[in-house]
Amino acid sequence: MIVIGELINTSREEVEPAVKERDVEFIQNLAKEQEEAGADFIDVNCGTLIKEEPEALEWLVNTVQEVVDVPLCIDSPNPEALERGLAAHEGKALVNSITAEGDRYDEILPMLKEHDAAVVALAMDDSGMPNNADDRVRVASKLIDDLTADGIALDDIYVDPIIQPIGTDGEMGLHILNAIEEIATKYEGVHITCGLSNISHGLPKRQLLNQAYVVLAMSRGLDSAIMDPLDDKIMSLAIASDTLLGNDQYCANYIKAAKSERLTI
């Protein structure tokens, strides 16, 4: 399971003032905690700052990279901010995100090539958000075909089938699971990620739904998620699921996690 740690995001209450005030210690601690908890990427997002965003994103990349070894996931709808963040990043970054919307695709692709970055590919196009499994598979397929034809390796593509709340559509959970399986089967080697906690929006005890859904989705081919690595329970479930799905030879990772007291029952 490739975990993209989601906590450095200015839409979270405590984080926005920390970024505005350039609080190095707060941001670096939040980054280190996530890395120690097992995050494979640290997401940085300061989209709520709008006018100041490109500058703040560059600062975040520099500040976080001073203290962690894992690469960053540079997260913004704003191409200018992405460019600033990518230019500051050392090593191979993950860009969040490209879509099949015509303008967005054309703006982001050259950046990926210039900076040799991996990319989260959101399954939406100019016709809007996907409604069902077929929409998701159709748009994801187009994105994967276009990206690989444009020189991006399959291993550098993280398809996001777009999680929408189960609370507004009871079939949503199934649509997404079916889409994950179809994409994973059709394109062996592509990564499939998602903004996991969207599934539980508007419902009580959200963590329980997130925990159940990560297991269900992994069984269908999800191999990454943008989530909270400090949630011990969900991290434990992801580690256990990888072992049960045959992604952990000799259960080595599971045993190691148990011995280092990282598993919660």
């Binding site: 609370g167 508007g202 419902l203």
Partner: peptide, 10 residues
């Protein structure tokens, strides 16, 4: 007040 949730409102 978080006493009712989205599907209940629907």
């Amino acid at each position: 007040a978080n006493e009712m949730f989205v599907p209940e409102v629907l």
